[in-house]
Computed example of a mutant assay.
Amino acid sequence: MEKRKPAIGKAARAGVIALAAALVPALAPVSGPATAQTLPTAPPYEREMHRLAEILGAVHYLRQLCDADEGQTWRTMMQQLIDAENPSTERRAKLVDSFNRGYRGFEQTYHTCTETAVWVINNYMAEGAEIAQRIATRYGQ
């Protein structure tokens, strides 16, 4: 069976990318380096960031599997979010783990592009856009 490109609207993909791009500056740190007295705890949107990281990992794998020809778009987007967030080493490792968990979870079960894979892509992109919008709206600067 040949791989086929997912039937995902350009608007949905553009929406996710635009929201993530808006999220990056919203997460940019506003203060100087942390001191022992100002070491940050996890932000209130931490769970949402981990879910977004998982989604980006899953979409990165599935879009490649379905011949979307996007290169490293989703991995780059994850890196931009991490760079904007500027997390501690421990938080960064956890975000990377979430991305990798999303990627590997689908890598283990999907070896060809199927209608279900396309369905997952579409749903994950919608969920990712909602999460990015929610974070940017609630916590953006």
Rank of each mutant, 00 (worst) to 15 (best):
G140E: 07
Y103P: 00
K3Y: 09
V59C: 05
K94C: 02
M125C: 01
I131Q: 04
C113I: 09
G128P: 02
P40M: 11
D67F: 02
E46T: 05
T35V: 10
E115T: 08
P87D: 06
T114L: 02
Q79I: 13
I131E: 05
P33S: 09
A20Q: 07
M78P: 00
A84F: 11
G9Q: 06
C66D: 01
A26F: 08
R134H: 13
E107K: 09
I8R: 00
T38W: 14
P6W: 12
E107G: 06
L81C: 08
H50Y: 10
A34T: 14
T116R: 05
R104S: 05
T76W: 09
Q108P: 00
L52I: 11
R91L: 15
A132Q: 08
A42T: 06
T116Q: 07
F106P: 00
L56P: 00
A36P: 07
T35A: 07
K5A: 06
R63G: 01
H60Y: 12
D69W: 04
A18Q: 07
R75Y: 14
E115S: 07
H111F: 14
K94G: 04
V24K: 03
G57E: 06
T112D: 10
A42W: 02
H111E: 10
Q79R: 15
L95K: 04
D97P: 00
M77H: 03
I121Q: 03
P87T: 07
K94R: 15
R101Y: 09
T89G: 04
Y110E: 10
Q108C: 01
D67I: 02
R92H: 11
V59W: 13
T109K: 05
P29S: 12
A136P: 01
Y110R: 03
G105Y: 14
T116G: 01
L81H: 04
R75G: 04
E54T: 08
N100Q: 08
Q133H: 09
T38D: 11
W119K: 09
